[in-house]
């Protein structure tokens, strides 16, 4: 482990402790905002686990998220909440495995289009099952979990995602993914099982996203297919992750936080013009931050290191 990594872990530890103290400081709006931020950090980082190295843009976030919500909505009557979350993760992972086995041989734009349809497919299946078998569509999720509880669950999930991502980065799988990301043909010639590696990553990513959905279910109180499978979420995740940059595990982190704060500022002060203002914010971001925030930070660090080296030489 390099000194840089140790420093980074120390930093992360301090950050997590600070975050954990948040529910003690505020009960109201800022906590809710923090839950929203934590949710998108979890979603975007989980998304990056798969889409970062493979360069395959997945729009299936809403499908996994909805599956997680339904896992809690159905399971909460029989299971304790943490177990329901795990079941949600499992359901998401199974769905990802089934879908991945069928589609990860597709490449590029075909895959994007397929994932876009996935949330709609899941929504229609759930609607069909509920119409034909159960005869009712809404499900109540009435729990006593506060925003503070949800925040802690999300924080734990984020830590789990980061640890997993870090482990993958150091494993043979991570190495294989970097090769695949750079040139799939070369990877095949090396004897890397491209499809299998992609599926494993898709399953991990989908499982985590579903767990995030399972955690958020109590906030919905009343779960309907239309609200659980919301395609807008898939796009938001892509936008935020790209803003942060997907080359680094912590890239989405630096994208989500400013993005959420800016959109929130816009929706509070210009409620009539949200879409226009967000569009303008996008233009600014795209023009000023081509490689995402993390790319910018990387560049800044490289130039700093560069000047230091130069200083040592002279």
């Amino acid at each position: 482990m390099s000194r840089f990594e140790i420093n980074l872990m120390l930093l992360a530890g301090i950050a997590i402790t600070c975050c954990a103290a948040l529910p003690f400081m505020t009960e109201g709006f800022y906590l809710t905002l923090a839950v929203n931020i934590a949710l998108y950090i979890a979603l975007c980082t989980a998304w990056t686990l798969f889409s970062g190295p493979t360069h395959l843009v997945s729009l299936a976030t809403a499908a996994f998220f909805g599956i997680g919500i339904y896992a809690t909505a159905i399971g909460i009557e029989y299971l304790p909440f943490p177990l329901a979350i795990l079941c949600g993760g499992l359901a998401g992972a199974l769905f990802a495995a089934a879908v991945g086995a069928m589609t990860l041989r597709l490449s590029g734009v075909y895959f994007v289009i397929f994932t876009l349809g996935l949330a709609e497919l899941a929504r229609q299946i759930v609607t069909y099952l509920q119409t034909k078998i159960f005869g009712s569509i809404g499900l109540f999720v009435l729990t006593d979990h506060t925003e503070g509880d949800l925040f802690y669950y999300l924080l734990a999930l984020i830590v789990a995602i980061f640890v997993t991502g870090w482990l993958i980065g150091r494993s043979r799988l991570g190495f294989a993914m970097r090769v695949i990301g750079n040139d799939e043909l070369v990877a095949k010639h090396f004897g890397i099982e491209v499809a299998r590696s992609k599926i494993i990553l898709f399953v991990i990513s989908g499982g985590f996203i579903a767990m995030a959905g399972a955690i958020m279910a109590p906030r919905y109180a009343y779960v309907e297919p239309a609200s659980a499978f919301n395609a807008t979420m898939s796009f938001m995740v892509v936008i935020m992750a790209l803003l942060g940059g997907t080359r680094r595990l912590w890239g989405p982190l630096v994208g989500v936080v400013p993005f959420t704060i800016v959109t929130d500022f816009i929706s509070a002060n210009f409620p009539e013009h949200i879409n226009i203002m967000i569009g303008l914010a996008f233009l600014l971001i795209v023009y000023l931050l081509k490689d995402g925030v993390s790319g910018l930070i990387d560049k800044a660090m490289r130039t700093r290191r560069g000047t230091r080296l130069q200083g040592a030489k002279s």
């Binding site: 929203n36 609200s227 409620p271």
Partner: peptide
């Protein structure tokens, strides 16, 4: 004081928090 909930539960929850606590 009116806010847009974008037809989404997440936004609606946040708006109600903002209205009641801010």
């Amino acid at each position: 004081i009116a806010y847009d909930d974008k037809s989404q539960p997440d936004e609606a929850v946040k708006n109600i928090q903002r209205l009641t606590t801010q």
